[in-house]
Structure formats: C-alpha cells, structure tokens
C-alpha cells in the first residue's frame, strides 16, 4: 500500500464516521457540526484525486452555503434542540438486514466488473485545464442547453423561495 492509499482510507473512515454521527447524535447542532466534517472529508477526497476544482467547489457550495443554510433552517424551527426519545424502534433489524444484504450484493456485482482490475489510465494534461470545461459549457454540441436550463432552474428556486417567504409573512400578520 502506498502512503496515498493509507491517507485515502483514513479520510474515508473519518468521513463515514462523521456521516454516521450526523444521524445518531442527539443534539441537532452537533449533527450540523458532524455534517460539516463529513462534507469536508468529501472535499479532501476530491483533492486526493487531484480534481482541485471540485474540492474547492465542495467547500464553497456545501460548507460555505448549504451548511449555513441548514443551520439557519434549524434555527427557524421550534426549539427541539435535544432529542430525548428513543432512537431505535422495535423493527430496527429489518432495514439493517436489508442494507447489509444490499451491500453484499453490490460488492458481489462490482467485484466481477472488469474495471476493478485494470489500472486507471493517466489523465491527459488538458484534463486539469478548466477552460476545456468552460468551452464545453457554452458549446452548442456539448452542454449549452443544460447550462441555460441550470439558470432557469436556479430562477425557479429563487421564485419558489420568495413565494414561501411571502406566504409566511401573510400568516404572521
């Protein structure tokens, strides 16, 4: 095993542990803290794969915007910051068995896939050049339509957010 692989396994373990803590911690704010750690672990994984753009975008969008938005949303709700009820119900073992089975099946299917045995091809030099991505975004033969559709989608999200907000104001008055 190379140093990089050891490092990757450590980061993956931390990310998974943080993800489990998100759903199992009782204090909702601690869940937000663990979520941020899990998202940061994903960013480090991107950096390990030498896709710097996605690593920083992960931090900018997920930690910088979505995590803060989630914390704002938590403060919006009624104050149930400490969950005192039981975390498991009686049927907890059914999904556990199902998930374990699904995982085993996935491992079984994927291990027969030939892609696991082959060595990854070295990335071409141009892959790290972000301008290729930019050119493809506005190329009619590539992603020009999704690019514009993304804009319309964001517009829809904005209008939806404002609609929800104005509704809330009406209720308050």
């Amino acid at each position: 095993m190379t140093i990089q692989q050891v490092f990757f396994l450590a980061v993956a373990a931390i990310t998974l542990f943080a993800a489990v803590m998100v759903v199992s911690t009782r204090r909702i704010m601690h869940a937000a803290l663990w979520l941020i750690l899990a998202l940061f672990g994903v960013a480090v994984s991107f950096a390990l794969l030498e896709t710097g753009f996605f690593a920083v975008v992960q931090v900018v969008v997920y930690i910088g915007a979505i995590a803060i938005l989630i914390i704002f949303a938590v403060m919006l709700t009624r104050q149930v910051f400490l969950d005192v009820g039981p975390q498991l119900n009686r049927g907890w073992w059914i999904p556990a068995v199902l998930v374990a089975g699904l995982y085993a099946a996935l491992v079984g299917v994927l291990s027969t896939w030939s892609g696991f045995q082959t060595q990854a091809a070295a990335l071409p030099e141009a892959a790290s050049d972000l301008s290729q991505f930019g050119l493809a975004l506005v190329d009619v033969n590539a992603y020009a339509v999704p690019f514009e559709v993304a804009s319309v989608l964001l517009l829809g999200a904005l209008v939806g957010a404002i609609f929800v907000a104005s509704d809330r104001k009406g209720v308050e008055r």
């Binding site: 910088g64 938005l69 972000l130 301008s131 991505f133 930019g134 964001l154 904005l158 957010a161 907000a165």
Partner: peptide, 26 residues
C-alpha cells in the same frame, strides 16, 4: 424566516457563480 431567505438567495447565486468560473477561465 428572513435569515433563511437571504441564505437561500446566497446559495442560488453561489451555485450560479461556480458555473460561471469555468466560463470566465475560457
């Protein structure tokens, strides 16, 4: 709710700008 609305508008612009950066590089 106001903080949430500003957070949401911020998120939308953030995603937009992330898409614009590759365009600016090219």
């Amino acid at each position: 709710a106001q903080y949430y609305i500003f957070g949401l508008i911020f998120l939308i612009f953030d995603v937009e700008l992330v898409l614009l950066f590759p365009w600016a590089v090219a």
